[in-house]
């Protein structure tokens, strides 16, 4: 899908010479170092990396929850100084307000902006309709399934018309089937709204399937190990996940992450030493199994 001509000039994320460290009694501990990333207006960019690599830290800094120790985060040239409705966020834990109905959750951002009741009710209904949730507008989140909760979470983040959408492993808690559906829904919404997306995940398939570009991070302290453009054409179909192109990208990313995950686990496993082992596991050597 070539929507280059229709792309808005809004939502350009720029993270420059970024570093973030925590103060502890033993001194500063670096979580993220020397990181440069950007998201062009309307682009879908993912960050993948081994667990604990600081990808969520980076996202939280873009959201404005964490202040960088060095470097700067800007959106459309404006420095990020704290959380704001300009940057919508979707959390892994859904984070819907349990005391508000589905519609009240979606209305929240509009209410904060001072929109009057009937207007924001209408806006929320329209948005919920787009996500196939109109029948549940009066339900409390407690009564929704995980996938529905996260759909509400995404709709709520989009309701205020943010410049960028930040997602922190939004589908991590969902089962595989629901996750595929959610990916499709997110793609549809993104294509319709042409909003810039920064998406954090540890799922390589998800990152490739959704993104225009993928950043791969190193183990802690995190920095950018590689930047991989995803040239797969859009709209993307599930069938693409079996294409040689997809699988090649997957293999490449997989080996990058594997390297880093092993580092994160504290030292690399010595493959040579493994080959010396003669433990028989149903006809496979331990080295093969690992």
């Amino acid at each position: 899908m070539s929507n280059a001509d229709a792309r808005p000039a809004q939502g350009h994320i720029e993270v420059k010479d970024f570093a973030l460290s925590y103060e502890t009694i033993d001194g500063a501990v670096a979580a993220v170092t020397e990181t440069n990333i950007h998201v062009k207006p309307g682009e879908f960019v993912s960050i993948v990396g081994p667990s604990g690599c600081g990808k969520s830290t980076l996202l939280n800094a873009v959201a404005g929850f964490l202040k960088p120790t060095a470097g700067v985060v800007t959106v459309d040239g404006e420095k990020v100084n704290g959380p704001s409705a300009e940057r919508g966020m979707v959390f892994q834990q859904y984070s819907l307000f349990p005391w508000k109905t589905v519609r009240e959750n979606v209305e929240f951002g509009l209410k904060m902006r001072g929109m009057d009741r009937s207007q924001r009710e209408r806006a929320a209904r329209t948005l919920l309709g787009l996500a196939g949730l109109e029948a549940f507008e009066k339900h409390y989140p407690d009564r929704l399934s995980g996938g529905m909760k996260q759909r509400v979470g995404i709709v709520r983040a989009l309701a205020t018309g943010p410049k960028v959408l930040l997602l922190d492993e939004p589908f991590g808690a969902l089962d595989a089937q629901t996750r595929v559906i959610m990916q499709q829904i997110l793609t549809n919404m993104w294509q319709r709204l042409k909003i810039s997306v920064l998406f954090v995940t540890h799922d390589i398939d998800e990152a490739i399937f959704l993104s225009d570009r993928v950043y791969c991070m190193t183990a802690r302290p995190g920095s950018i190990k590689a930047e991989i453009p995803i040239p797969l054409e859009r709209p993307r179909q599930q069938s693409m996940m079996m294409s040689s192109e997809f699988l090649a990208l997957r293999r490449g990313l997989m080996s990058l992450i594997r390297e880093e995950s092993l580092k994160a686990m504290g030292g690399e496993i010595n493959d040579l030493a493994m080959q010396g082992l003669t433990i028989d596991l149903h006809g496979h050597s331990l080295a093969d199994v690992l």
Binding site: G64, G82, S84, A85, G88, L96, M112, A157
Partner: peptide
Amino acid sequence: DPVLVRAAQCLGA
């Protein structure tokens, strides 16, 4: 839950 506070902040509260 601090995540709920963050969610509210992201929505302009």
